[in-house]
Design a protein around this nucleic acid. Sequence first.
DNA 1: GTCTATATCAAGATAGAC
DNA 2: GTCTATCTTGATATAGAC
Lengths: 184, 184
Amino acid sequence: MPRQKITTPEIIGIAINVFRNNGYHGTSMAKLAEACGLMKGSFYNHFSSKEDILLVTIRSLNDYLNERIFKIAYDNALKPKDRMKKILNKLSNVLRSDQGGCLVGNMTLELYNGHNEFRQILEKYFQDWLNAFTTIFAEKYKNKRAEKLARLSIQEFEGAIMMGRIFKDDELLSETIDTITSRL
Amino acid sequence: MPRQKITTPEIIGIAINVFRNNGYHGTSMAKLAEACGLMKGSFYNHFSSKEDILLVTIRSLNDYLNERIFKIAYDNALKPKDRMKKILNKLSNVLRSDQGGCLVGNMTLELYNGHNEFRQILEKYFQDWLNAFTTIFAEKYKNKRAEKLARLSIQEFEGAIMMGRIFKDDELLSETIDTITSRL
DNA sequence: GTCTATATCAAGATAGAC
DNA sequence: GTCTATCTTGATATAGAC
């Protein structure tokens, strides 16, 4: 019996990048397998289907962001502005358009009419993000206003990734980070 | 010989909606054909390939926006704020997320690694949009600042469409229109 | 757990009748 | 210009050996 070449969590880490660079339909099992150094048949020992891979991958990304990044929004040891700055810088490392951008943003546009299970996890992702930003803005603004600024800031961030992709320019993201933090 | 069921421009009008609702890979020739009331084989009398359909469709949308909407940015008879308001309202009618959102935004994320001809027309689309907004903002702000605000406003608009799609809420777009016009 | 087949199906595209 | 029928390819997924 051959030894294990790659673990499931390692596959997930690679799959995130393949999916966000090529889209869901643009990613074939063969392409995924090649990126992992496996034959495509071997994949079904780790996942039940291609759809399953994407779901597990998005959930994993959602968990990562919550535990490593959005969590900072609730850290009272830091000033609101510093919390926001820290979050945005970490996000820009993870979601830079030269790395394929935001997997969830991409999937939102590609799989809008797709499976319900997708919508559910995509919506949760944005909701967690909104909650984090709203919490920070709420320290300086009234609730309604804080919610509005949180929404607007995420729109700007996702828009920056999209336009950065077109113009091959990640400077946009830096500009947007300044714009958002200047509100605090 | 059977009479013509549908003209090429009519097909393009339908294809815009099919593509932006289902994405490029999610749109099959069969789906396109059904939406047009044709058999999929009949399509090759109007276009040479599926890729060709998307290219023609995006070019057609680009022309439409330039002639009918972005043109308003250069109408000196109107005040800058009114020009912007008019453009944004027209754009929101055309790009509402409940209609599938912005075809070009969707394609940008799905076809990033794709054919070069795509990138070219997608980039032109955003450039025309940027030029229009920059022209308007330049009447109140210095050049650099006007460019920056134009970029930011488009980011916000595309982001609003994306989030509106997730939360099934086009109220976001109205809010964003207010945010953008308030800068003038 | 990974591999080499292979089954199955859907997609883009073409040919030729009308 | 549209149709029916068909070709060809590439994709997801499965079966069984190692």
